[in-house]
Amino acid sequence: MIIDFIQQIFNGLVVGSIYTLIALGLTTIFGILGIAHFAHGSVAMFGGYLAFFLISTLGIGLLPSFILAMACGALLGVVLERVAYYPVRNAPPINSFIIALGLTLIIEKTNLLAFGVDQVIIPTPFNRVFSVGGVTMPELRVYVLLTAAVLVVGMTLLIQRTWIGMAVRAVAQNRSTAALMGINVNSVSMFVFALSSALGVAAGVLIGALFAVAPGVSEGLVVKGFAVLILGGLGSIPGAIVGGMVLGVTEAFAAAFISSGYKDVISFLLMIAVLLVRPEGLMRGKTR
């Protein structure tokens, strides 16, 4: 029983770390621009497909493909910000949401056109299975968890310790004051979109390696990302990390001990409950 318990915590943390990657992008974009970037899930799926293409068709190695895909993701992010979101930066938030929906359609269907309708699994050479005290830990899952952890720590350091990170935090706190202090608000927006989309792509690649990249995955993924945001508090980076883990573990427990068909229902109910009891999120107060 206790082994089962630990096993599910491990499984939950692996999936949760991917949710965290998605949520980190969403939360920074939300913090800076107040945009619910609904197309983030399809950006992630684009990344998964791209990495698959680079690895299987062009025969590039796993790590270079991963990095290349993230770079392309960053570029895509900048394009999205410039072309689609920038023109509506002063309009009501619902407009940028509609833009996000339009983008979702476009990216999703472009994925279909470019990469086909079949689901693809990114091939990895990691087939070993570790067993630690009865808990099964497939090598791949361990690496997914580690990769996600490295990216999350890297992102946090970038935001907390560097000059550009300080600019991002300043814009999140007060856009106009930041502009008055000589921060180029536009470059910050582009930077945030580049960074977030790169992380989203990373999540997409990890999902592709762990489960599969397929049409229709992105919507569920982005909603999970938003669920994490709600759990952790909109705009909060520590919140996204804690929220992602909580969501992943809850789901794993729900799937293992209650019903796998209703696991998403349970995680959404958790989110709704948190929202009603603590609308500011679990981690508010430690934000930014």
């Binding site: 939300f30 619910a36 938030p93 949401f97 569920g220 909603v223 938003f226 669920a227 945001l229 709600i230 909109l234 019903s259 068909g261 209703y262 998403d264 229902v265 959404f268 109910l269 989110m271 709704i272 929202l275 009603l276 609308p279």
Partner: peptide, 26 residues
């Protein structure tokens, strides 16, 4: 859900939609 506003409300209702959908399927 109407106790919360803006994006929160949008996301909660979206989650509700997914809950109903999953129930219809399962």
């Amino acid at each position: 859900s109407l106790r919360v506003k803006g994006h929160y409300f949008a996301i909660v209702t979206l989650a509700m939609n997914m809950v109903v959908f999953i129930v219809l399927v399962n």
